[in-house]
Design a protein around this nucleic acid. Sequence first.
DNA 1: CCTCAAGTTGAGATCGACCTCAACTTAGCT
DNA 2: AGCTAAGTTGAGGTCGATCTCAACTTGAGG
Lengths: 199, 199
Amino acid sequence: MRKDALHNRERLLAAARGLFADRGLDVPLEEIARTAGVSIGTLYNRFPTRAELVEAVFEDRVATVARLAGRALEADDAWEGFTTFITAVCELQAADLGYNDLAVRGAATATDPGYASMLRIVERARESGALRDDVTIADMAFVLWGVAATVRATSRVAPTAWRRHLALTLDGLRAAAAHPLPVPPMSVEQTRAALDGCG
Amino acid sequence: MRKDALHNRERLLAAARGLFADRGLDVPLEEIARTAGVSIGTLYNRFPTRAELVEAVFEDRVATVARLAGRALEADDAWEGFTTFITAVCELQAADLGYNDLAVRGAATATDPGYASMLRIVERARESGALRDDVTIADMAFVLWGVAATVRATSRVAPTAWRRHLALTLDGLRAAAAHPLPVPPMSVEQTRAALDGCG
DNA sequence: CCTCAAGTTGAGATCGACCTCAACTTAGCT
DNA sequence: AGCTAAGTTGAGGTCGATCTCAACTTGAGG
């Protein structure tokens, strides 16, 4: 790859990162190219589809989430590990509307590598007795979808309101709060289908 | 209004009702006209803007919600009144993707007439001691946004999953579950801005 | 300095949705 | 039956976004 091509690639990624963060994943490609100071043709050269651009922009988040998950498992208190992990993921969502879109729409790909560690975080919190024992990892999708929706609705107007939503939600996940649930958890297939079904 | 005009109006409303319910508020107007067996020009005659069509389609929901609210206030148990009201509103959301969109995007208009009764339902549940005393009516938006997001993600794949999400959320609203919240509730202006900000 | 593969460019084709309006049709009155 | 205001029609203009490609420019090896 020629050095000017690499340079343009970086400029495009930087522009996309910024615009995605501010306005979500639906920013016009023309605008990304313009912001990067590059023609639309070049954008298509580097990233033939929007999905490839999105993937390149958010590549690093996978590692970030893995690191957060690692930290959560090291926490002394299982419940604290659980909540700080969920909170951290929500912080990522709140700081970047693009990541928020991604978490809602194409979460299957985005969360796949973190799935195993997330499972362990949930198991550990449940075994500690702090997390209610009738929830499964599939229920975490509710938390993320819910907070993501609040972030989208409030980010311009009450940028920390989602923390309140999250706190209320987490209180509902404590073992002490448990009341019988009306329907069984989603199956793995259902969760997967829901996650990439709405992209 | 001439009788054929009225007839076409009904056909358009019926078509819109069906398509909105299945696919949300963004269905192309052309498709609604086609489904109604009427030309696009006629649709624009009857409903100059999409918003007017949407309003006409969902006009009845206002009364429905008011009726549900009335029933909630008559319930012997304040907590039960509260939960059955919220559940009923979520059922409306789950049964109709268009109403779901409306609840998320233009909720300001949609919920305005029900606001007063909703306030009373919340107050009553709080005073009864069942609803935690650090939540306000503004927090109800979190519940509705959250469940709406789950409905959208799962409606095709796990159509009752939202009931589980709602149950978990309601458990977090019980007085017994209360743990300190990190940020104050949204102000009335913030809530209003958030509600019609994302339309 | 020359060459050419690699890379860039941007005008324009394409697409789907929105919206208009002049020509046509018809309900309903007398 | 005839008139007219009310209503319908759909081809076509507009708009914003996606995507292509033939002509041009440039980095880098010889």
